[in-house]
Nucleic acid binder design. Structure first.
Length: 571
RNA sequence: UGGGCUGUCGCCAAGCGGUAAGGCACAGGACUUUGACUCCUGCAUCCGAAGGUUCAAAUCCUUCCAGCUCAGCCA
């Protein structure tokens, strides 16, 4: 049942596997990876790929994976994210080794290492402003110019750096820089900044520090401190590997040298993942928030009803490579359906109700039918469904003048009501404007569902007696008097066609359609957000975990629709 | 324009010198009390392009082309 044990990952990312196997043989130490988010936002499916890769790799090779908050730059209100990120990773199905770690816990070590670099003549305090540094940087095809402060003595640098730490200089007035090569074709090597002065209160260290380390400097040290053997990151950091190695190799205190490897980040069609894009959509009121079910944030996908196992399999299926790729949203949906199928109860709900009157069933009579939750899986059990004179069917399931190959209800035609009887349409009721207000039918009592079903079910559903009629159409329905009013939220992709681009995207105006008058069968009265349902012929739904409709009705999110090969005939 | 990386079916993706796996999508068909599921069948004489090496190349070499990426005191 659990088909994603990481074996999928073994079928991809050969370059990583090869590197790990080779490294593991020589070093006599266990694999240790890490997932190092900056606690400044919620995780989305792109981040989830990094989570997946790091944790699954550790699992495959019997190693460990750390969770580290990369909080080298003080940001406000990160406590919320620190907790959310942990919840999201656990929901995805992973547990990190030991406690959550914080880069800020290593600030003292970072400082000591910087002192080491200064003593070795590998770092210097630079008095240039940000603008001046930028101006001296040169260009993509032009060497930069060296800082006039580059050749200060170690003693002077030590003194200045300590005073930087002690708060003697204003924000941005000085930096500590690595002394590498201002002419390097790799821009990251042009005397990169190691420390900047910025008086911001850090959520973890408070006001202890007024100097904070840069990512390029801190990250390799964090990895080395934690004994990370393989530091997996996005290809955009490929250019940073030389600087990563430069620091790691110049600091003697680290015996295990972590190795950075890169993989391409994951893009998905028809959605937006960028932090600022999402923020914009929220600000404009286009979506409800970071956990909007239309978003591919982990909280959004959870709320929408995506099983974590489906996301994991999707992540495995899209592979680990260095080539930039954009996965079809449809592939994600495929795995969501596949995982939802065995865990869902098939129930009936009518999204857009049309009344049907069963003429030959007296008023006040309720027949209680026992309908299996899953025709394909008897072990799923069954529930009671009331059948009454007035019921509702889907408006789309009736056509007064049926088109070709319309297998549903139309005057003079027969259909089966799922779990009940075959009904024959005898007429239509209309209002003054000619709108159809109700459909009249008669039911055939001899066609009761499963009346003589064989125990093995080898011949499927049989009817008793001589009734052997088969009808092509099987409709879902709900009893008018027992129906539960619900609101159904139908989602579509946020973006039409193209994936997120620099220039923007085409929003889908119908990314959410609210069916305010939907009706569900009474068995849903005790549903919880953890339940998974398939609304027969409509798709997979789950009870929204935080929302109730205006009228106080429960809100059901359509996780994903069912596939359909039904094509209306061309006009 | 300098550096780095990448280019196998519409989308992912195996393949690593021996004659193009698989999944999604798509198109037919079977089955069906979900037009779902399931099950068959089809879907790259070709691996960005052009040369070359070899008995043999997507895999090696050369050149070219295209895409992504880098000039925060962000991560």
């Amino acid at each position: 049942m659990d088909k994603d044990n990481g074996h999928i990952l073994l079928n991809t990312g050969a370059f990583i596997h090869n590197a790990i196997r080779t490294d593991l043989e020589g070093r006599l130490c266990d694999l240790r990876t890490r997932f190092p988010p900056e606690p400044g936002g919620f995780l989305h499916i792109g981040n989830a790929r990094a989570v997946y890769i790091n944790f699954e790799l550790a699992k495959i090779y019997g190693g460990k994976c750390n969770l580290r908050m990369d909080d080298t730059n003080p940001v406000k209100e990160e406590a919320e994210f620190v907790q959310a990120i942990q919840d999201e990773i656990r929901w995805l199905g992973y547990e990190w080794d030991g406690e959550v770690r914080f880069a800020s816990d290593y600030f003292d070590i970072f400082y000591d290492c910087a002192v080491d670099l200064i003593k070795k003549g590998l770092a210097f305090v630079c008095d240039m402003s940000a603008e001046e540094i930028r101006a001296s940087f040169g260009g993509i095809d032009k060497a930069g110019t060296e800082s006039p402060y580059r050749n200060r003595s170690a003693e002077e640098n030590l003194d200045l750096f300590e005073r930087m730490k002690n708060g003697e200089f204003p924000d941005g007035s000085r930096t500590l820089r690595a002394k590498i090569d201002m002419a390097s074709s790799n821009l990251n090597l042009r005397d990169p900044v190691i420390y900047r002065i910025t008086r911001k209160t850090h959520s973890n260290t408070g006001d202890k520090w007024c100097i904070y380390p840069m990512y390029d400097y801190a990250h390799p040290l964090e990895d080395a401190i934690e004994g990370i053997t393989h530091s997996l990151c996005n290809v955009e950091f490929e250019d940073h590997r030389p600087i990563y190695e430069w620091y790691v190799n110049r600091l003697d205190r680290f015996t295990v040298k972590p190795r950075q490897m890169e993989f391409a980040s994951l893009a998905v069609t028809n959605t937006v993942m960028g932090k600022r894009h999402i923020r914009k959509l929220v600000a404009e009121g286009k979506i409800g928030g970071w956990d909007d079910p239309r978003l591919v944030t982990l909280s959004g996908m959870k709320r929408r009803g995506y099983p974590a196992s489906a996301i994991r399999e999707f992540l495995g299926a899209t592979g680990v490579a260095k080539a930039q790729s954009t996965a079809d949203f449809g592939l994600l949906e495929h795995y969501v359906r596949e995982h939802l199928k065995p865990m869902s109860k098939v129930v009936m709900a009518v999204l857009e109700p049309l009344k049907v009157i069963i003429e030959n069933l007296p008023e006040g009579v309720t027949e209680t039918l026992d309908v299996p939750y899953n025709t394909d899986d008897p072990s799923a059990g069954s529930r009671a469904v009331p059948f009454t004179r007035e019921i509702y069917i889907e408006r789309d399931d009736f056509m007064e003048v049926p088109e070709k190959k319309f297998f549903r209800l139309a005057p003079g035609k027969e259909v089966r009501l799922k779990g009940a009887y075959i009904v024959l349409c005898t007429g239509v009721e209309k209002d003054a404007e000619g709108n159809i207000t109700a459909v009249r039918c008669t039911y055939d009592p001899a066609t009761k569902s499963g009346a003589a079903r064989t125990p093995q079910g080898d011949s499927g559903m049989q009817t008793d007696g001589a009734e052997t009629r088969k009808v092509k159409g099987v409709l879902h329905w709900v009893s008018a008097e027992a129906a539960l009013p619900i609101a159904a939220h139908l989602y579509d992709t946020l973006v039409l066609d193209a994936p997120e681009t620099e220039t923007g995207w085409v929003e889908n105006p119908n990314s959410m359609v609210v069916m305010e008058n939907a009706l569900a069968e009474p068995s849903l009265a005790n549903a919880t957000p953890d339940d998974r349902f398939q609304f027969m012929r409509q798709g997979y739904f789950c009870l929204d975990e935080k929302k109730a409709s205006q009228g106080g009705k429960p809100v059901y999110n359509r996780t994903v629709g069912l596939k359909s090969s039904y094509k209306p005939p061309a006009p």
